[in-house]
Design a protein around this nucleic acid. Structure first.
Length: 339
DNA sequence: GGTCTCGTGTTAGGCTAATG
DNA sequence: CATTAGCCTAACACGAGACC
């Protein structure tokens, strides 16, 4: 059976293989930079998961897990296998290989052979066909850096981004590189997909072994980049990034136009008359905005309505798309998404 | 026909007991 | 004491049907 991440007790030691697992998320960061630089699109993990062809069996009760048996039991624990069971009816033997994700513990395991699920909190992850499963497995290590103590983490995983590398051969080469890097016999004379990236990771791995704190520094820098990104977004919203163009129409004028348009639609009975919205109090204003901008309530610029789901017979194969809650994804409307 | 409400199944969050 | 297992509950999403 192909083993996933090593148990935590190994992580504190100082050998080549352990450093690999300890630093994998950093390496994935470097690889992601490479994909970003080469204009690869990044997609949400949640959009790349394949629906399993079977109903996931409920996890075994701990009393039913034995020290020997016909089938290995895999839970979200750090140990790859926690025991064995003969409950063949609970065997997960379809859609393999699968990635086992510990919703509580954040463990990530790559499983190729049939197994039985131990306890709850185990999420089975199967990427869609455009992904090599092992490529997907490795890149998941770069995603969950935040922790919610012993809360659930699957939502973080689903919201994480992965490079959409359509070239399956390239995915395999990246996987081969990472697999080879786990061995201290690794030599960077042999190029898998990109000499410079591979060398960067190899050098990092070597430096790690020397007790170098590059990884810590890199993680620190990535955190700073994240903070910078958040600040940029905040500044953009507050209009601090660029000078206001003097020729731009003031927002107050635009707001008046919108109000007039709404009143016209109400007069034409195309919209229902809405309740008067309360004026914005000074204490409601979260931050200062440029002179040309103006605060308003969402209801002033939009028509907010609700309704129920039409019956199945009302749906047509073509025509105006019908949006459901699940079509609203990552602050965008995704007309094609299906849960 | 449009809107509202309720029932049902699923998922996420979090607490705590059990375990080693 | 840290980690893991398991349970409870809130929130979400959807669909059906009642109501105006």
């Amino acid at each position: 059976m192909s083993r996933g991440r090593k148990p935590s007790s190994y992580l504190r030691s100082n050998n080549w293989d352990d450093i690999f697992w300890n630093s994998l998320s950093t390496y994935i960061g470097i690889l992601n930079n490479y994909f970003t630089t080469n204009n690869y699109e990044f997609v949400a993990i949640g959009d790349c998961l394949k629906k399993l062809s079977f109903t996931i069996p409920k996890g075994l009760n701990s009393k039913e897990i034995h020290s020997s048996g016909n089938h290995p039991v895999i839970s979200q624990s750090k140990e790859y296998i926690i025991g064995f069971s003969d409950r063949t009816e609970l065997l997960v033997d379809k859609d393999l290989p699968l990635i086992v994700f510990g919703d509580h513990s954040k463990t990530i395991k790559y499983v190729e052979e049939p197994f039985i699920i131990g306890a709850d909190g185990v999420k089975l992850v199967k990427p869609i066909g455009s992904f090599n499963a092992r490529f997907f497995y490795y890149f998941i290590f770069g995603i969950i850096t935040d922790t919610k103590d012993y809360g659930r983490h699957f939502s973080l995983l689903r919201n994480g981004l992965i490079a959409k590398v359509e070239d399956l051969e390239l995915q395999v080469k990246v996987v081969e590189f990472l697999d080879a890097l786990k061995s201290d016999a690794f030599s960077n004379k042999n190029v898998f997909f990109n000499a410079s990236v591979e060398n960067e990771i190899y050098e990092l791995q070597k430096n790690q072994l020397k007790g170098n704190d590059i990884s810590t520094e890199l993680t620190h820098q990535l955190t700073l980049v994240k903070k910078l990104r958040q600040q940029l977004l905040q500044d953009a919203v507050q209009g601090k990034l660029i000078e206001q163009n003097a020729t731009d129409e003031p927002a107050s004028k635009l707001l008046k136009k919108i109000k007039a348009e709404k009143e016209k639609l109400i007069a034409e009975k195309k919209l229902k008359k809405e309740k008067e919205l309360p004026p914005i109090k000074p204490e409601e204003i979260p931050f200062e905005i440029p002179e040309n901008c103006v605060w308003c309530r969402l209801g002033e610029i939009a028509y907010i309505t609700s309704g129920s789901t039409p019956s199945q017979t009302a749906f047509a194969a073509s025509g105006i798309p019908y949006l459901k809650m699940y079509n609203l994804r990552n602050q965008k409307i995704d007309f094609f998404h299906k849960p």
